[in-house]
């Protein structure tokens, strides 16, 4: 028995030796659809850092629903930087742990959003249900796929874009707006927890007629799974989604990685960073730095923003719409 324990200990130390010997590592805790973006960006940044300083650096990624990822950082996940879907999620880390200062949005250009995106529709090839705008989503027999706004950042943008459209259509009548959004969610047969889950539901499992998706997610699905199966429909009105990034001061100071972590975020705004963002279907915040060919792919959409008077920023919108007992809870009754 003692021999067995020794053997296990030896095996354990051998197995552990791998990661323990690594050099400076940086952990980027991100949300669901940015996997491909940061895979490309990390390679570019590692090369850039090596050229600048001669140091090798290991970049680690963790992905999941934006809210769940923020929760993990609050519970102690050792993130050097967070790149999440919503300002509210980073605010939650700031207020619950104090590891990020409250004014974090002002520390980087464009309110800490190096790229933006919007919400579009992904429909099956030939658009058999003739879906052109938000109003078509509540027609009889149309099934809509979106993740759950309670758990998914992307889903909150979906919901708010629908809200903005209904508000505009009804001329500011809140009861009618609520009714439209409520009806829309009655057309949702499956409410996944994250954006990528909804995409697989729609694309792989073949459920639903239209997927409300991040523009980058919709383009990626087209690219990965074939333009012969799906097409993108751009609604008359959508929302400008600004996924923000932030340094987790409390963690980088403990690990001594502040310098490289700051450089990592700043490099997102460089020519390389902006080009990679555009290549991965995110709208660069400095389009003049990106490849014009990539920019041509983005359709013109009339965009509202979260800071418009209609919503009044995340600090107001989050509790009013998505808090416990908020408007989403009032209008959403799961369809049987």
């Amino acid at each position: 028995m003692i021999r067995l324990v020794r053997l296990a200990a030896l095996g354990a130390s051998l197995l552990l030796a791998g990661p323990a010997m690594a050099q400076t590592t940086l952990l980027n805790v991100s949300y669901d659809p940015t996997r491909e973006l940061y895979k490309a960006y990390n390679t570019a940044f590692a090369a850039h850092w090596k050229a600048e300083t001669g140091e090798d650096i290991v970049l680690r990624q963790s992905h999941g629903g934006s809210g769940a990822q923020a929760r993990a950082v609050i519970d102690g996940l050792d993130a050097d930087v967070v790149t999440l879907a919503l300002e509210a999620d980073i605010d939650a880390i700031a207020s619950k742990t104090g590891k990020i200062p409250a004014d974090w949005r002002k520390r980087l250009p464009n309110l800490s959003a190096p790229y933006t995106s919007t919400i579009v529709f992904l429909v099956r090839k030939g658009n058999p249900k003739g879906i052109k705008d938000w109003g078509d989503l509540i027609k009889d027999g149309v099934e809509v796929i979106t993740p759950n706004p309670k758990t998914s950042g992307g889903a909150r943008w979906n919901y708010l874009a629908a809200w903005a459209y209904a508000e505009q259509q009804s001329g500011g009548d809140e009861a009618k707006t609520k009714e439209f959004v409520g009806t829309l969610f009655k057309h949702v047969p499956v409410l996944d927890t994250g954006a990528r889950g909804s995409t697989t539901t729609f694309v792989q499992r073949g459920i639903g007629d239209v997927l409300l998706a991040w523009e980058n997610e919709a383009f990626l699905a087209l690219e990965e799974l074939g333009p012969d199966q799906f097409e993108i429909v751009v609604p008359s009105l959508s929302i400008k989604a600004e996924p923000p990034v932030a340094l987790v001061d409390g963690n980088v100071d403990q690990k001594g990685t502040r310098k490289v972590a700051e450089a990592y975020l700043e490099y997102l705004y460089s020519k390389d960073g902006q080009t990679i963002a555009a290549k991965n279907f995110y709208r660069p915040s400095k389009p003049e730095l990106a490849d014009p060919e990539d920019l041509k792919r983005f359709p013109d959409v009339k965009l509202v923003t979260i800071d418009d008077p209609l919503f009044g920023g995340w600090a107001k919108t989050q509790p009013a719409h998505f808090g416990d007992g908020g408007i989403f809870d009032q209008i959403y009754k799961p369809a049987n």
Partner: peptide, 13 residues
């Protein structure tokens, strides 16, 4: 794979 084997090597004994 390494991590999975390590976890089993610790938790099973």
């Amino acid at each position: 794979i390494r991590l999975t084997l390590l976890i089993a090597a610790i938790s099973v004994p």
